[in-house]
Structures are given as C-alpha cells and as structure tokens.
Design a protein around this nucleic acid. Structure first.
Lengths: 209, 209, 209, 209
DNA sequence: AATGAATGAGCGTTCATTCAT
DNA sequence: TATGAATGAACGCTCATTCAT
C-alpha cells in the first residue's frame, strides 16, 4: 500500500470512531476528571457499548495517553505557527512578537478551555509518569522561550546577562498563571486581555519606575 | 467551651490523634496521591485501626479538606511572617525585600517539597470544589503581591501605571513555575537559587536592554 | 444426498475448512486448555475471521464436542487396527499380543501427546456431559480389554475365575497411569518402555514370587 | 504467645469462617468446576458478602490452592494411617494388607466422592501449575507403593526382578481407574467391592492361568 | 459465504463506609 | 472509644456471540 492508496471505507470508519472516542474521553476527563470517569461514561457519551472501547484502546491508561498526545499536538501546532525566534531584530518588533504570541495564547485558551484544564489541572496527578510528561512539556516550554531570549541578546535588544533558561521558565510561569486565572473565571474574557498586557509589560521592563 | 476552659486530658488526646491522622494523611496523599491512597493506608501508617479514622473524620473527602486547610495555614503563616508591604520605601529596599521573600519561598520549598506537590499537582484535580480552593489560594497570592506593588507605586519607586492585580498574578505564576521546576528536580538545589535570582531580575527590570 | 452423489467443489471446500477448524481448535484446546482458549485464538491460528467460525459451528461448546469426537475416532481406529481378541490361543501368543498392543499405545502417545493430554486432563472438567463422554470412553476401553480376557479364559490360558470386566477396567487404569507418567515427562521416552514392560509383567503374572 | 495460649474469640471466628469458605469453595469447585464457579457463588452459598471473601483469601487462585491443600491433607492422612510397608513378611499378610488398603480407599471414595472428583477430574486442567501438583501427587503415590513392593522383594515374597517404581505407578493407575469407575456410578457401591477384589487378584498373581 | 466491528453479560477485584463487639 | 470484620457498589476488562456489510 503506497502513500496514495486511499483508505477503505472500513478503515475510515475505524479512524473516525477512534477519533470520536478520543474526543469523548477528552471531554469526560476534562469535565469530570480522569479518576472520576469510568470507561462506561465515555461509551455512554458516544452511545456505544463499552466493550467497543476495548476494540480501539488497550485500557483506560492507554486512552489517556492518546488524549494527552492529541492535546499536545494542538499546543505544539499553536507554537509552531509562530514565526521563528530570530525573526525579530529590534525591541519594538520583539514587543510586537510578544503581544502576538500572547494573543495567540489568549485565543487558544478561549477556544480550548477544557484542554487547558486537562493539561494544567487534571494531568498533573494521574500518576508519576503523566506528571513527568507534563513537567517535561513545561520544561520544553521554558527552553522554547529561552530561544527567543537568546536571539534578543544576540541582536542586542535584550539584557546581555540574562539567565535565559531560568527566565524562560519564569515566562512559562507567567503564562500558566494567566491560564489558571482564566480557568477560574471563564466568563470574563476582558480579564485575560488585561493580564496579557500586564504580563508583557512585566516581561519587557519589569516593575521598577 | 470558652477560651478559659482547659481541655481535659481526653480532649487533648483526641486533638492529638486528629493532628496525627492529618499528618499521616498529608504524607500519604502527597506521596501516593489522593486517589491512590486508601483510608487503610493512612491508618496503617499511624498504627491505628482504620475504623478509628471514621471517629474523627466524616469520610475520605473530609480529611482531604482538613489536610489542605492545614497546609494552607502553613503557607499563610509563611507569608504572614514577612514584614508588611509598606515597610520599604525605596527601590533598593524593595529589591532586598523581594530577595528575602524569594529566599523564604526557596527555603519553604526545600523544607516542604511534599506540601508543594500536594497543593500544586495533587489538589488541582480532586473535584471542582478543591480546585476552586486552590484557585482561590492563588488569587489571594496575587492580591497579596499586588499590595506590595501598590505600596511601591505609592512610594514612587515602581511604575505608576502598573496593573498591580494582574502583575501580582503574574508574579504568582513566576513563583509557581519555580516550584514546579524544583519538584521536577528536587536533588538540584542550585537550580532554585538561579531561578530565584533570574526571577527577581525579571520582576524588577524585565528583559529589555 | 446418497453415497453416489459427488460432492460439489464448494461442499468439499466447506468440509475441508471445517476439518481445519477442528484441527486448530484441537491444538489450541490441548495446548492452552479449553477455558483459556478464545474463539479468536482458533481463528487466528487458521488465519480466518473469527466470525467465520460461527458459520461452521454453533458455539464454543459445539466445537469441543467435534474435537473430542474427532479424537475419539483416532483412538478407536488405533484399537480397531489390532487383531481380534480371539486371534490368539496360547499364553505365549497372548503375551506377544499384549506387548504389541503396549507398543501401539506407546507409539500413539509419543505421536499424539496432545491428544492424550486433551482426553485425560482437559476434557474431564469441561462439564458433566463431557465428563460422561470420557467416562464412557474408559468404560468401553474396559469392556474392550475384557473381550481379550474372556477369549483367554475360553482358550484356557487365563484364570477361569477372572472378573473380566473389572480386570479390564484395571488394565485401562494401568494404561492411563502410563499415559500420565509420559505426559509429566515427555522428554523421556525410555521411561515409557520400562513402564510398558513392567505393566505387561504385572498383568500376566502379578507381583507375587 | 506460647503454644498454650488459647485463641481469642475473634481468632477462632476468623479461622472458623476461613474453614467455612474453604468448605464452600470445595463444594462449588467440585460440583460446578473451578472455571464455572464465581467468587460470588462461594459467597452466596455461605450467605456472606463477596467482598468478605477477599478479607480471607488473596484471590480465586489462592483459595483453589488452599482447597487442594486441604484435600491433599485428607488423602495423606488416609495413607499415613496405614501401617508401615515393612510391617508384613509373608505373601499372605501382604495380601491382607492390600485388601485392607483397598478397603480404605473404597471407604474414602464413598465418604468423599467430591474430593475424588475434584482431584482426579477438576484439578487436572486448571493451569499448568495445578496439573503439575496433581502429577506430583500421583508420582508420590507410585513411589509410595514402590516402598511396599521393595519390602516384599526384600522379604522374598515378591518377584525379585520387579521394576518396583514402574509397577508402583501401575498400581496407582489401577486405583485411579477404580475411582473413576466409582465416580461414574456412585449409586452402585457393590461395583467398587468387585473392582477392589479383582484389582488385588490382578496385582498378586496376574491373569495367566 | 466470509468478515470483523459491535455488543453486553459476567467476573475478579478494590475500597470507602458501617457497625457489632 | 477503638477496632477490624463485613459489606456491596463500582469499575476495569474479557470474550462468546450477533449481524451488517
């Protein structure tokens, strides 16, 4: 079968159902929590027999991995859309870049509050392995930010003596806090904008007069 | 019972046992996780019968509340020890104050990694009520920081146009990220110091050159 | 369909597939055990869909019957090949006959250890009906042996007062014990020969000096 | 606690219940078969909650071991009651000894048909480990018989050239066949007596005239 | 006729909670 | 008051069987 072979109808249906199960599991996990969700809840939401679940996923832990992976794809895609760290050369452009990224995060959070809840609140306490996954994601996020900071130093518009990795982690923290604020008051989108503005201000020039 | 009534021996023993159960539950919850901990695990750790547990606490969820409450007391006490927001009047003193607070957080994290884990990773996913508790804690943290910032504005050493509440939340995010970094690599205390240094730098003057 | 109607190609293929399913089921049942074998295991072994199974057999229990029946045919055929009970007239010939039959059993066990295992170990515990089948087989075996003994009495070279039926059953027991010994140590074919020799000795003249 | 410390009431009740569960499991396993028996069947028979079962036994396989062990004790006790192999010195005494042992087996089978069924029919196909146990039991039985035969050779009343071990196994087979005959027709106790008589005849002097 | 996706009854096991002692 | 035996709801998972394609 080469890459041009179209999927058979059965294969398409299979993939379709798998995607639907992942989606249903995602919704259950993010709404009720992983431990509070029974396989039969996922099946019931879809209107399928709960044995059907096991035709497509090994076990409950397996689909959590798939759901998280699926979710990480979304997040990765969000970041990948951004232009490269070295695309800017001046502080002004950098600020614009930061604001654009902040906008993107805001939009993502508003569009996918359940994803945010799943990753930041739920997935942190399933088991050690999943906690390590999330930790790793955040770590990568910090390094990702550090890249942007390194570019700024190289271009001369950021402080030369920045500890870019640590600062990168701090920026991730700023983003997390915004996300948590948002989750606690989803009905108030204005707040997120204010937060983003203050966060970029803080990032660029700190609080000192 | 008024404040002058001395506790009977029996009452003192009762309170003592309750405190021990809370401590044992804290350890189990933070080490194994809430869902992975059975009531009998808590009882076994203390060497009491697990029926005894129900003489002192309504149910499993009840003791989680007590454990978290207990933990929040500790954290509150940590912050309360700090001198008042209006104790400083210059940027230099403010920086020193920030560094001292950062030290305190570092020390607290190093002394109580299990507390940090419980609050930041575990308690976020028990149920909506508990998540709300944690959110509230973080919110209070943001307002707490905002107080310090407001003092700085009033004294003229911080930017007058700061959105102090939002910036306060961002600072909480910075602290959270540091705590998460620490949890992911508890064996590396140096990292925490570097992070604290970078975080204070970021807070005071941002990243711009 | 009378005996002259040739089977159509489709019919032949159908019978062929049924025989293959029975063979596959036999292998699975004897290797893993009836309860540990899933219908899909049988289908997988053959490389057919497991739905196909139900086009040829009513249910799991049904094919066990077929497998056992098939196996009993083999065993019956083994015995039928033997020359008639009345073919011998002297004790010497009888001993030779016994040794030949013992050889045949040895050869059968060595050639078909899985059959032996299925009949003696596995089939005894499926349900009452199957246990009755096996019991019946053993009973027939006892009567079969009794025929040989009766011939010996008639010809005068065996004890006249033998309870031939009971003795026949005892002989079946001797054979069973040999088979079980063999199954417990399949890698040691010598043992079977020694056992057969001792068994014939016992049968002919007992243990008394 | 020394060996004279009487058990507390709670301990006695605990042991009592465990014994009752083992008895109930024994009855279910021997009547319905291991695989056909659910833990809830055992509990229902006793009128206890099925969770209670797990307070006393690790899992389903665990209680099977206990049931079988319990059963093997009974059988071992049966044989241990018999006088020693070297208690007889003449063929006549040996025959009497054989008949007495045969009587004992008859009595045991009549008293414990379910035990016989469990060991010979059911336990042979639970899993490889249990099959090995049963095989081992039969092997020990063969060696046990061999001891008696060796004594006879030493005393000179049995054939000097007997392969005692193989002959011992054959005798075990004779016993098994009797047990199986009995199980297939429990209502006919006469048959067992006839079988025993014929079996001893066969053992002592074989079938030859 | 062959397939394998779907189904759901059924079972082993856990554990929060109750309650008799 | 402390205990731990008892309970049964709940859940993860398997697999024989059905049936649309």
């Amino acid at each position: 079968m080469n890459e041009h072979t179209p999927l058979t109808r059965a294969e398409r249906q299979r993939l379709q159902l798998q995607a639907e199960i992942i989606e249903a599991a995602f919704l259950e996990f993010s709404e009720r929590g992983y431990h509070q969700t029974a396989i039969s809840d996922i099946a019931k939401r879809l209107g399928i027999g709960h044995g059907t679940f096991y035709r497509h996923f090994q076990n409950k832990r397996d689909i959590l991995d798939k759901v998280i992976l699926d979710t990480l794809y979304k997040i990765t895609a969000l970041l990948a859309e951004e232009n490269a760290p070295d695309a800017v050369s001046t502080l002004e452009d950098y600020i614009i870049q930061c604001e654009r990224i902040a906008d993107r995060f805001q939009q993502f959070a508003k569009d996918n509050p359940k994803t945010v809840r799943l990753i930041l609140l739920e997935a942190t306490s399933i088991d050690k392995e999943m906690t390590a996954h999330i930790n790793n994601l955040l770590h990568m996020g910090g390094l990702f930010v550090a890249n942007y900071l390194n570019n700024g130093i190289q271009k001369g518009f950021l402080k030369a003596n920045l500890d870019t990795e640590m600062t990168g982690h701090a920026v991730v923290g700023i983003i997390i806090a915004g996300a948590l604020r948002f989750l606690s008051d989803v009905e108030n989108p204005k707040m997120l904008e204010q937060y983003a503005y203050a966060a970029v201000q803080l990032l660029i020039s700190g609080v000192a007069a």
